[in-house]
Design a protein around this nucleic acid. Structure first.
Lengths: 256, 256
DNA sequence: GAATTAAACTGGTTTACACCAGATTTATTT
DNA sequence: AAATAAATCTGGTGTAAACCAGTTTAATTC
């Protein structure tokens, strides 16, 4: 059962020391992780198929998959639907305190950002939105849905809500650019305060489809509310990220 | 195969509307999630066993487990080894910019913090540690390992390193209290700057055992480096959290 | 009643198939 | 050479059994 019968494996593949832990899938996981770290599996590279990995380890497919799921949870690999498993690119570093908008901080890290406008329209405020903006339920709000990419990989979908009273005819501007830019240059609105919440979540149908992922996969929900100098809500943003696309880094002076 | 044969299920259990998605495990997931949200499964409550859930849904155990894993990734439920699945308590809210130490911010949220000292000793700096502290490799450093609880659930294990030159005989103090406190009151050391990095990770053997979790489960690694007014590294802290125990919330003024 | 032992139960892990639908590649036709 | 059709490969999902090792509970003994 546990006999190893080398076959079919890419020529660069070699057996690496197994973990002490008896659990087979952990051994498989560590083996793959080692290949990634030592460079034989480069960033963006496609892993051997699940069935190929089986012949390399003598494990059942379920066991192989358990290992792959683990690596996925760690952010080391990701999958393309029915195409294969790939080595994840490094996550973007996200500093909530130095917010300058997606376009600029992705570019600042030597990556290529891209924004795609999915939808832009006027809606009636739901009870929840009304509470956030301090308007009456049913009041008009702009709703903007966008998809954003890093190096041509879709990493997040977002739904932005804006109060038309602050930004009349906002939808007529180019919304595939930085919204922060538009607010500043066309409306002279400066964001003075940001409230950001992050929590793991499961991607629902909508988000998953937009990210070309299976619905139900874990993601990261980033909720951002921007305020202007008068304390008014300028922007309410819900971002659903691929969980492996970003990592948080904060550098702060503790005043107190 | 898909026939539902109600049996053995707790009396409060009832079938809830299934998702449109044909995937069976998503239906199971949503069903359980609905029970949690509508309150029939209260915080801390134990779910029906996997085999019991089978009789309720007609699914294979593997399918049930796929659903449970999903809910676990979302942070809705957690497991106790070979005991059962439980509804997760709400996560603690973590604001990296308002760092006041674990004890105080957990208490501030109406939860009960507890710290347990696992180990405290002097070690020789590894290359990595030496680089962080700006000392020679092999130089003495204090190493403190602690486990911390919220409401008697172990939520993190941490390894702290401190430079003995700044804090001589630190190990003689009570290390199950707030270290920040000790540094301030006994050494007059004030932390002026913090650098915090967070990223998902897989829990290794050590951390998992300390948290009574299976090694390999996803966790959250929080790396914190504290500096004093002179820019010296006061504390280098590696915290391994249960991934479902905290959520991040930052409220910041964007100065620029 | 308390301590001990045995049985029942729970999740943990793995195997081995089976079938599906989308992605990719190959062969075929136009 | 380009468009099309078919075969193949890949992950996605699901079933049905086993067996293991801790947990928990029930039965038994002291």
């Amino acid at each position: 059962m546990t006999a190893k019968k080398p076959l079919d494996r890419p020529d660069w593949w070699m057996d690496l020391p197994d973990a002490v832990d008896s659990r087979h899938y952990l051994g498989v996981r560590d083996s793959i992780a080692a290949h990634i770290h030592n460079g034989s599996l480069a960033e963006g590279a496609c892993l051997p198929s699940e069935r190929q990995l089986q012949t390399g380890t003598g494990a059942a497919r379920g066991t192989i998959r358990a290992a792959l799921f683990q690596l996925e949870a760690e952010g080391l690999i990701y999958r393309k639907e029915r195409s294969g498993w790939y080595v994840s690119p490094p996550p973007i570093v996200y500093d909530p305190t130095r917010w300058e908008g997606f376009m600029s901080y992705v570019a600042a890290q030597g990556r290529t950002p891209k924004t795609e406008l999915l939808d832009a329209r006027t809606i009636a405020a739901t009870a929840e939105l009304a509470a956030v903006f301090g308007v009456d339920s049913g009041a008009p709000l702009y709703e903007i849905r966008r998809r954003r990419y890093i190096d041509d990989r879709a990493v997040l979908v977002e739904t932005i809500h804006v109060d038309p009273r602050l930004t009349p005819s906002l939808l007529e501007h180019d919304l595939s650019q930085s919204l922060t830019q538009v607010l500043r240059s066309h409306y002279s609105i400066a964001v003075v305060r940001n409230r950001i919440d992050m929590a793991p979540c499961a991607l629902t149908q909508d988000e998953a489809v937009a990210l070309r992922l299976k619905s139900g996969l874990p993601g990261l929900l980033v909720k951002r509310i921007s305020y202007d100098a008068q304390g008014r809500v300028v922007e309410y943003d819900l971002e659903y990220w691929r969980h492996d696309a970003l990592k948080i880094s904060v550098d702060i002076r503790v005043g107190n």
